[in-house]
Design a protein around this nucleic acid. Structure first.
Lengths: 141, 141
DNA sequence: ATGCACCCTGTAGCTGCTACAGGGTCAAGA
DNA sequence: TCTTGACCCTGTAGCAGCTACAGGGTGCAT
């Protein structure tokens, strides 16, 4: 009657192993078993897993998803908790972007200085080997 | 005479365990040992580790750093190899930024729709639970 | 009876470290 | 000489979030 794990996986764009993993870590509730010991999933499981997958695609980590699922189960609770989790994640994403943008600039600078030729006078290798750059984070602050 | 591991670590802003890890995976050449079985590092090790740390700070992975170190050891080789590695990494960084920017927008939209109140009508939770969004990547492409 | 697609459990691997446990070494001080 | 304490050693397990086996069982069709 219920969905088999492969069907659930296909319906949500998840790998079978990942579904089992979510169950093992307690993110997805245990499924009933058939007489042959196959997992048998309900539409509620489908919703649950869709929620998880969507949150994962948005970059939420497992701990956050646990909290969000908890909240989703208690409709009377204050939305502020969900807001806090999402905003915290947004800030983390913004931080990551900022760090990557700096990185991109530094890489661009490095690559832009490479005028071809042999490794012996390659600016890329030189930059990486440069002593004065090696601990700029420590020297600077 | 040479540097002890703690001294090398301090001089490069690395943890002692990390230095041992780099040696174990063959990224940093083995050090001589003292009579008491302590590792004894040379200035060449210091240069080598500084190179590694700088490349790591720029986000290069271990495999790339291995290649870059290889290149740095062969000054007669064509710089294009170094350029290829660096440019490939740059592209990966740009990809990551692009994906995170999309993520940021989606998170912003989601959070912006939250008008407070109870979880029961929280747009954040609703968005995550929304079926139509759950496999948009499949549906759309 | 046989083949095949699917399911099961358990465990190891991925990246780049980090953090122990349980010991040994070495220089300084009492 | 003994002891303290900072350092060093090896080996192994843990983090996140899966992924990929090995080695077996189930269920349906032929």
């Amino acid at each position: 009657m219920g969905l088999k794990i492969g069907e659930l996986a296909k319906a949500t764009g998840t790998k079978v192993e990942t579904v089992r993993y979510y169950e093992r870590i307690g993110l997805l509730p245990q499924a009933e078993r058939t007489s042959g010991n196959y997992r048998s999933y309900t539409p509620a499981h489908l919703d649950h897993l869709n929620f998880i997958r969507h949150a994962r695609r948005l970059g939420f980590d497992i701990a956050d998803i646990r909290s969000l699922l908890d909240l989703a189960d208690q409709p009377e609770r204050d939305c502020a908790d969900a807001d806090r989790i999402a905003s915290g994640h947004l800030r983390a994403v913004e931080d990551k972007i900022a760090r990557l943008v700096l990185l991109r600039e530094e890489l661009n600078r490095m690559i832009g200085q490479c005028r071809g030729g042999s490794v012996g006078n390659c600016r890329i290798i030189e930059t990486l080997a440069d002593h004065s750059l090696c601990r700029s984070d420590h020297a600077g602050g």
